[in-house]
Write a protein that binds this DNA or RNA. Structure first.
Lengths: 263, 263
DNA sequence: GCTTGCAAAATGTGATCACATTATGCGCTT
DNA sequence: AAGCGCATAATGTGATCACATTTTGCAAGC
């Protein structure tokens, strides 16, 4: 590993009039969600700026946004990296997805019209075709789109951004998962979800969504892919004399409280 | 309203070695969560920078972070403001709080030790004293701290940042709520929660948390404080010729999908 | 061979400036 | 008197630079 393992980021088309920092953000978000950044990967402002042929400023903005959405992790030395995955973290993410998405689906259900239902069917078809064609990236993408299309039936939902944050956090794990797990071709939970929508059956929809999430990533929890505890190389508290960050060590509760401004 | 109604932001103490942008972020976060920024309030980089006696750069960073956490709203004209509240939005926020916090409490329950339980009792005492002394700001703060201390019993929980994002979104509404609603002095749900913790009773804890959330802000949904639809003054799509943002109008689903990089 | 110390490179942070776009205020026209 | 148009001010975006801190590379010492 002598070479700098800089992962190339494929840039999407830039919308006319779109700010560069949002363009960069979209590129990084896609790269992270599809797992093109391996867990633990360090990312630097200047490095990304050079590889994307933009100045440092938009990259800085995009990184800050990604850190705020928990897609990236800010170490105490002010450096940014892709979070690594532990069994505990994986379990939390799975639970969070189920908790949020079953509720979002239930609340969206009464607002799904025929047009949207047809669109959902179309996406599911695309998933099946991509799966048959052996295009796992497309499968993952269209699967996210299926869920997103379902939840956004309720406009302005608070849940969607929260769900997307969780998706981003599971992203770095996706590629490893796609490469290592046999395509087990499970029962199509989307069919069950679509049937529940047609029946206007909230309980059945909840069951289908939860099963879909568990089928998708749940079985990965027991593979050997997860690290146990992972004290990161860039440690969470630096050792020597360091006038820059003289703040005392604080418990997570205290730290959160302070950041929240709770005296 | 001829004067510029710039809300003064009281700056907290700056930790030694703390970056300025984080200092600014903490100040703004606190101001927003305690409702010192009225809904609809416009915020500008230069304006805040001047009133805080810092340069524009850290303010720009802090605003971007707050927008990412949905504490502030980014209009299409690239201007930032405090989101306004609608009945639909309020209902979503209430549901999101209950969904997330009951789950977080359940998952934290097995990890609460005696020390933390005592700390929770101490916070509840402080709430009661502040309530008796007529200090609503302290009541709100310590109430958040109570919940935060409960959920962070499980270290590294994914739920805590999600919950904090929802708190931030309810923040601007808090001051209005505190000023307009009579202190109805409801039954102390925290006592019920503490009893459920002592009994290690997850179902009872869920009930207590949900009741606490509903008692705290739920009754505000029927007051006349909420706007119905609110097409904002800074409209969501600008009128004239505008080479800067030539992107076509897109549905929420499409916009989300594009931002997520889902082709 | 491994550690220690120091110099050089790399990195995040913050400040300042230029520019395009947007908002605002004022005078003019009807 | 009200609506319109234009000049001016205000704002977000992006670039570049300086600086303190951190990391890295390498050589000297045990």
């Amino acid at each position: 590993m002598a070479e700098s393992p800089r992962p190339t980021v494929t840039m999407p088309d830039r919308d006319p009039g779109e700010p560069i920092h949002q363009w960069v953000f979209r590129a990084l978000r896609r790269a992270i969600m599809t797992g093109h950044f391996p867990p633990g990967q360090a990312v630097t402002i200047r490095g990304l700026a050079e590889s994307m042929n933009v100045s440092a400023m938009p990259v800085r903005d995009a990184l800050r946004r990604l850190v705020a959405e928990r897609a990236l992790e800010l170490l105490d030395n002010r450096r940014v990296r892709v979070p690594s995955m532990t069994t505990e973290r994986f379990d939390e993410l799975l639970t969070a997805r189920i908790t949020l998405e079953t509720e979002a689906a239930t609340r969206a259900l009464p607002l799904i019209d025929d047009t949207r239902l047809r669109e959902l069917h179309a996406i599911d078809d695309r998933i099946n075709r991509a799966d048959a064609a052996g295009a796992p990236d497309t499968v993952v993408e269209q699967n996210f789109l299926f869920h997103l299309t379902l939840y956004t039936a309720r406009p302005g939902s608070i849940f969607v951004p929260l769900i997307e944050s969780v998706w981003l956090q599971t992203g770095p794990f996706m590629r490893v998962a796609l490469e290592e797990t046999p395509s087990k071709d499970p029962i199509d939970r989307h069919i069950e979800a679509l049937a529940a929508i047609a029946d206007r059956d909230p309980a059945a929809l909840r069951r289908a969504i939860e099963a879909d999430i568990r089928d998708g990533i749940g079985h990965l929890g027991n593979t050997g892919l997860l690290v146990r505890k992972q004290r990161p190389p860039g440690r969470l508290l630096s050792p020597g004399r360091s006038p820059r960050r003289a703040a005392k060590i604080a418990s997570e509760t205290t730290r959160n409280a302070r950041e929240a401004g709770l005296t």
